[in-house]
Amino acid sequence: MKVLVLNGLNPNQPESNRFKDIVNSSFGLNSSGFEMVDLHTKKIHKCRGCFDCWVRTPGECFVKDDSQHICNLIINCNLLVFLTPIVYGGYSSYLKIMLDRIIPLISPFFVKYKGEIHHKPRYNKYPALLGLGIQSYASSDEVKSFKQIIYRNSLNLHSPFFHAETFMNTDDEASVKNTMIDIILRMEDLNYAE
């Protein structure tokens, strides 16, 4: 199973390295083809909202930076993992600046999907989606919002499966690791291995 982790943790927050290490060790030991992209080290411009990726250079953003390589990794993995602090119930700006650039992966044309209007898939298959959100303060509303965004992303990305898990930044390593290994085993049971 090819796993791609988009690490949107804030490098200036003290717990970021700890969670990055836990994810690295949990996935690294349990998945062949594991890759983590530290988004804060990449050159990614903000999306201009021009839609050139749909009509001018179909399937690819007109602005050249690291986002093209990351889009390529996304569409060719089996499991896409968003690792992020929960920011007001959503993603960090480190993660979101990349996610705003993934629209070339879908078509501009509309289709009715699960009773709603969404964009048609551009590719034959899309990765399953896993959201890992880290809270610095407890808020059930923010957890609910984070999980809802992962669900909505899974619809728009045509993901065959999605799951969202949240942690407190004070959670101990062993419990976080156990939860992650449980998730990985569940994902593998769903037979996403190539």
Partner: peptide, 17 residues
């Protein structure tokens, strides 16, 4: 704000942060 991938655009998140 416009909706970008089911949430607000990244620069607006930066501002909120």
């Amino acid at each position: 704000t416009p909706l970008f991938v089911d949430s607000i655009p990244a620069p607006l998140i930066s501002f909120l942060e």
